[in-house]
Amino acid sequence: MDSWITVLLVLLPTGVAFWLARETSRLRERLRRLSRTAQSKQKQYQKIETHHEDEADLRQRTEEKLRSYLQLMDTLINTIPNPIFFKDIDGVFRGCNQAFAREIVGLTRDRIIGCKAGDLGPQIPEELVACLKRNGVHSATFEAEIPCADGRRRDFLFTTATVVGEGSEKAGSVGAMMDLTEKNRAARERAQKEKFQGVLETAGAVCHELNQPLQVISGYAELMMVDLSEGDKHYGLAEQILEQVERIADITGKLQKITRYKTVDYGRHAKIFDIHQSSDD
Rank of each mutant, 00 (worst) to 15 (best):
K41W: 06
A186M: 07
L70M: 12
L66M: 09
L20I: 08
S218F: 06
A187E: 14
G106E: 03
H52G: 08
E239C: 09
G175Q: 02
R111N: 13
D110Q: 13
R111Y: 11
Q192R: 12
E55G: 02
E103S: 13
G91N: 03
G15Y: 09
T263H: 03
F85W: 15
I272F: 08
R188M: 10
A191L: 15
L58N: 13
L120E: 01
I48W: 11
Y235R: 02
L70G: 05
R61D: 10
H208G: 14
V216C: 04
R260G: 03
G95K: 02
G151R: 00
A56W: 07
T24K: 14
F158Q: 00
G253N: 10
G253D: 13
E23P: 01
R247A: 10
G118V: 08
R33V: 15
H269Y: 10
E246A: 15
H208N: 12
E243I: 06
D88G: 05
H208Y: 11
D2W: 10
N97L: 04
P13G: 02
V174D: 01
I77K: 00
G172M: 03
G167P: 03
T24W: 12
L31A: 07
L255R: 01
S173H: 05
G167Q: 06
Q46G: 09
V164W: 09
Q42N: 14
D150G: 01
M73W: 07
P13T: 02
I80P: 00
K183A: 14
I89T: 09
K262L: 04
F156V: 01
P213C: 04
V129N: 03
T160M: 07
G121N: 02
E64I: 06
E55V: 11
L157Q: 11
I275N: 06
I275C: 06
C207E: 11
G236E: 15
E222W: 06
E64F: 06
N211P: 00
W4Y: 14
L128Y: 05
V245M: 04
M225K: 12
